[in-house]
Amino acid sequence: MSGLLYLIPIALFLGGVGLAAFLWALKSGQFEDPEGAAARILLDDDLEADESSQRERMSR
């Protein structure tokens, strides 16, 4: 049973990582535009324009 002494903390830690990831995603706006995110992966014909706009957004 002594295995529990580290198995429980490991389980809790993993759960905590999941929770932290969820809270981070929520905070960083990952759920702001689910439909747009699904559609944007299809945009590939204008990579260049997209990258430059990306850069400008990053630099803001």
Partner: peptide, 20 residues
């Protein structure tokens, strides 16, 4: 839409949120 907006001179960012 985003391309047309970025095509306007001086446009710094254009982002369309499809959900809203």
């Amino acid at each position: 839409i985003e391309k047309a907006m970025m095509g306007l001179g001086g446009m710094q960012s254009a982002r369309l949120n499809l959900s809203t």
